[in-house]
Design a protein around this nucleic acid. Structure first.
Length: 991
DNA sequence: ACAGAAGCTTA
DNA sequence: GTAAGCTTCTGTT
């Protein structure tokens, strides 16, 4: 007798009841790939899919009214696949044969998700020999026969065939209901024709053959014309297109077999009756016990609130796990091994659906997915009331992830006023929150605030709960900017990911820019609006708070959505390419450190600069007179073109050379040579240029950067501007303040400490040569550094056989030039230029050098070979620098790339070392009780601090220790690092 | 108003 | 010979 016979098992389901069927197996795979990887904090157990599953179940049980799925559920069950041995395998042994094993960190989650289902007190249904889809089909039929509605929680296309007036699908990740019209829109046929459609088009993921050459479009068109598969096959000979007719006749059997494979079995017998699925109120303690074991704190709290349970009183359940993946063990701070090139991921087959994927497949899938759907800025929402804002923030906390950015009135974060901010939760779901937009109308009254904006204080109070929530990952592009803006409002942002830094870790050297515009172009094939489009440009430009809210919404929300989409591509790539540690240890943690340095700024003495400016003006004017007298006419001394004509045409000085544009070259080097030949004017030009350079670039420009509120100068550090890992500084650039000449050094006396404080300058001595000695493992260099011997003197002694004592200055100077040349990927041409000696002589020096230090030549050859082989080189901490043009056929382009590839590991490793020091130094000072000592500036191998006089003496050894040990424990340097540090009232004396 | 060249500053 | 950013001039838009 049939167990589903109503006579035997009176089915309690009745008219108006609503059955929810969750496709548990489908969900696991989808959640695993769609959600950010999450591991249980205490033991590294991967639980991302479990977390997504629990959040979804809870949401469905609680908020069915709020989601778009109609009536709340009365019956509820979760359905799983039992095993891969099903009747379809008997029919067609190749069915699903091309699937690979699930990822290792997904395996333990299968069992956990069944545990989770039981913790929710929900029936957990699986049957040997059947797929979850067949069980779902059977229950949907039973529910319909009993007069109930069914909602299937899945978006699997295999289930589309079940949709009808009383059965619908619901995609939990897109919060989208799929009914008959949606099926028609997506597939071009109504649900009842889905079986025939799939039979024709086949499915590469499930290995369903279909009819070769017939895709979705053609299949839908044929069914439209012939009605169904049987009719189509019967009348196949009528088809006009030769190719299509032949293939349909020839592959008739494949089509019929495919139909049996995709047709779901809706008449399983011996199945648990529907009345076992009646939805009960949640069992708070049981559920919380499980959630605690999983360490899902946010959901635990929420369940405790709703069920009125005291979570603190409940013990975590003991949850057994089949096999814990060890892949995500404790972070040992070890340098990663050589990272895999991108080629494997790029060539992996891009699939249409997640399915079962290897990490490389996932990366390929995410790259395809990124381009698959269009960004629609017009669909963005403007949030203009506090209730809506709260709802979005709650949704972000549910998801645990949100893309965020600020829109402000200035590109300088220290002057920027907040105009609004945007949030994106998932592709297609982005919003902008205007806060301080004004209308141009009230000009005379100072501009009126636009109606319908949430008061800034209230909005920021809500925003704080999101940005400071440890359970919500904030994703931004160049987050440091937003961090400075928000920290000025007393709000921190943590935890976070930064797509700019991810791109930098992944693709340094692949393109000049890691800006959002170039990333959107590269990864999404999308050209975003520019600030110019929104604010205008030039004289007619307006600040962002004057932009119309609709326009601002489109711009701001688009930004957030792009960031979210980029993140989905980059996150798995970091793991795939072995760059997680570079990103998480060298890039991300530096962000808040730099944000604080930028906010502190440095004090500058206006009067010193003003007096210097006057002196420089006088000196330059006097020289200008003399120059014009020598020229016999007034001309613009600052114009290289006019100057060239005076020197080489009018005065007829011989030996001039031309630049590539055909102008006379008048560089300092050429002018120096002319001066050495006894010409009077060139020397004066060189001096004039020095004075005007100092005046325009430094003494005149710097005061304009003094912030009116802080009275200090706040530079901006770019974290992703160089290819090697160095920072750069701009607005103003404080990494090129003069130091070489006495005149220039006077500028540095204007950089001062506040009264009662001193500036401390701590710089690495010869860090790049030490790194070279480490990487290339050169015995003499290691010995010299270990013994504290002057490295250039040692080099000269080794090369020329001269004793260390009484080394002639000129000999040491040449050795020094060679040492630097090595770091720069030496060429005879460059060295000859540097030392003003014939190329042959320079070549002889290099030859001699390599004879004495064969290890250096080996290093250079090995690095070139590696760069050519892999397309990239790496630093001692695993930072990759790409050289896509290393194989260029143009010899000068190729040689340039080779020199850069030789230099990058050296410069980049040194940059990594100081980054590590910077991320540690604040804590070290705090721990030493030095609470007032603050890091202000970084100049590649130097750090500048400001400290109260009383802390200086204690701070210096702390700073030195952190800096000298910064490579540890990831890398044990074979040579000691040495730091010189001193303190003074101004930067000149401290340096 | 903007872009590129030339030149100069730093590590 | 490596890596940056800023100013002025010059010619174009």
């Amino acid at each position: 007798m049939d167990r589903n016979d109503p006579a035997r098992y009176p089915c309690r389901m009745k008219n108006g009841d609503h059955l929810f069927l969750v496709d548990g197996s489908g969900y696991i795979f989808r959640a695993y790939h769609a959600l950010p990887p999450l591991t249980r904090k205490s033991d590294g157990l991967p639980v991302g899919a479990v977390a997504g599953f629990c959040n979804m179940l809870w949401k469905l049980m609680q908020n069915a009214r709020d989601t778009d799925v109609g009536e709340p559920p009365t019956h509820f069950a979760v359905i799983f696949d039992y095993s891969s041995q099903t009747f379809r395998k008997d029919l067609y042994p190749e069915y699903k044969a091309n699937r690979s094993a699930p990822p290792e960190d997904l395996i333990p989650q299968f069992g956990l998700i069944r545990e989770a289902t039981r913790a929710f007190d929900l029936p957990c249904i699986e049957m040997e020999g059947y797929e979850a889809d067949d069980i779902i089909a059977t229950y949907a039929r039973l529910a319909t026969e009993a007069g109930g509605e069914t909602t299937i929680i899945s978006s699997d296309k295999d289930l589309m065939q079940l949709v009808n007036g009383s059965v619908s699908l619901y995609d939990p990740m897109k919060d989208k209901e799929i009914n008959v019209p949606e099926v028609i829109e997506k597939w071009g046929v109504p649900p009842e024709k889905m079986i025939d459609l799939q039979a024709l088009m086949g499915d590469s993921v499930d290995n369903i053959p279909g009819v070769p050459g017939i895709g979705q479009k053609t299949a839908a068109q044929l069914l439209e014309e012939y009605g169904d598969l049987d009719t189509l096959l019967a009348r196949a000979s009528e088809i006009k297109q030769n190719k299509r007719r032949e293939t349909l006749i020839e592959n008739r059997d494949k089509a019929l077999l495919s139909r049996e494979l995709v047709r779901l079995k809706n008449d399983i017998v011996d199945i648990d009756p529907l009345d076992t699925m009646t939805l009960q109120p949640p069992n708070g303690p049981k559920l919380i016990s499980f959630l605690k074991a999983m360490e899902f704190t946010t959901l635990t709290r929420r369940v405790a609130d709703v069920t009125g349970t005291d979570a603190a009183q409940i013990e975590a359940a003991h949850v057994a796990v089949a096999s814990v993946a060890e892949a995500h063990g404790p972070d040992l701070d070890v340098a990663p091994s050589a990272s895999a090139p991108d080629a494997a991921a790029a060539s992996a087959p891009a699939q249409n659906a997640p399915g079962v994927m290897t990490p490389a497949d996932l990366v390929a899938f995410r790259k395809t997915e990124a381009r698959a759907s269009a960004i629609d800025p017009a669909a963005a929402i403007a949030i203009r009331d506090i209730a809506t804002l709260r709802a979005w923030i709650a949704a972000a906390r549910d998801t645990g992830l949100v893309a965020f950015n600020t829109q402000t009135t200035s590109l300088d974060p220290m002057r920027a006023e907040l105009a609004g901010f945007s949030l994106a939760l998932e592709p297609g779901k982005a919003a902008y929150v205007p806060l301080a937009h004004k209308s141009g109308a009230g000009d005379l009254l100072g501009g009126g605030t636009v109606e319908g904006q949430i008061p800034v204080r209230e909005a920021l109070a809500e925003l704080r709960t999101l940005l400071e929530d440890r359970a919500v990952l904030k994703i931004a592009q160049d987050l440091k900017f937003d961090l400075v803006v928000m920290q000025r409002h007393g709000i921190d942002i943590a935890p976070f990911d930064d797509t700019m830094l991810m791109s930098y870790a992944l693709d340094a050297g692949m393109a000049a820019s890691h800006s959002i515009d170039s990333l959107a172009q590269r990864w999404l094939d999308y050209t975003p609006m520019t600030l110019k489009d929104v604010c205008g440009s030039g004289k007619s430009a307006v600040s962002f708070d004057m932009v119309e809210i609709d326009k601002a919404t489109a711009y701001g929300a688009e930004d957030a959505e792009i960031v979210l989409r980029l993140w989905r591509v980059f996150k798995p790539r970091l793991a795939q390419d072995g760059l997680v540690s570079v990103y998480e240890r060298l890039e991300r943690p530096l962000t808040p450190v730099l944000a604080r340095m930028e906010q502190r700024g440095i004090s500058i003495d206006r009067q010193i600069l003003s007096r210097l400016s006057g002196d420089l003006a006088q000196g330059a004017a006097a020289l200008e007179d003399e120059i014009q007298t020598l020229a016999g006419e007034k001309f613009n001394v600052g114009s290289p073109k006019q100057l060239g004509e005076i020197l080489f045409d009018k005065l007829g000085i011989p030996g001039g050379t031309k630049t590539k544009t055909g102008q006379w070259a008048t560089s300092a080097q050429i002018l120096e040579e002319l001066a050495a030949e006894g010409h009077e004017m060139p020397r004066k030009i060189v001096d004039w240029r020095q004075l005007t350079k100092l005046k325009s670039t430094y003494t005149d420009a710097l005061p304009g950067f003094i912030n009116p509120q802080t009275h200090r100068v706040h530079t901006s550090y770019a974290m992703a501007a160089t290819t090697t890992g160095r920072l750069s500084s701009s607005d103003p650039n404080l990494q090129n303040i003069p130091v070489r000449t006495a005149e220039g050094r006077k500028i540095r006396t204007a950089f001062i400490a506040e009264p009662g404080n001193l500036l401390i300058s701590a710089d690495y001595s010869q860090i790049e040569l030490r790194v070279l000695a480490h990487i290339a493992d050169i015995p003499q260099l290691r010995q010299a550094f270990a013994d504290g011997i002057d490295i250039h003197t040692m080099t000269a002694s080794e090369m020329f056989g001269v004793p260390l004592e009484n080394m002639p200055g000129e000999v040491r100077r040449r050795a020094k030039a060679i040492n630097f040349g090595i770091i720069y990927g030496i060429s005879a041409f460059g060295l000859a230029n540097q030392l003003s000696i014939p190329r042959e002589e320079a070549g002889a020096y290099i030859k001699k050098y390599f004879e004495r230090f064969p290890g250096i030549r080996d290093y250079m050859e090995a690095t070139k070979a590696a760069a050519r082989e892999n397309g990239y080189v790496e630093t001692i901490f695993g930072r990759c620098v790409n050289y896509p043009e290393i194989r260029a056929s143009n010899p000068s382009i190729r040689a340039f790339n080779e020199r850069a590839a030789i230099n990058a590991p050296i410069q980049g490793s040194a940059a990594d070392i100081i980054r590590r020091a910077m991320t540690r130094i604040e804590d070290a000072l705090q721990s030493a009780g030095l609470t007032q000592t603050q890091m202000l500036l970084q100049v590649h191998d130097e750090l500048i601090f400001e400290a109260p006089e009383l802390e200086v003496e204690a701070a210096i050894p702390v700073i030195r220790t952190v800096m000298e040990n910064a490579a540890m424990p990831a890398v044990a340097m074979k040579v000691p690092l040495h730091v010189d540090a001193r303190a003074a009232r101004n930067w000149d004396e401290a340096h």
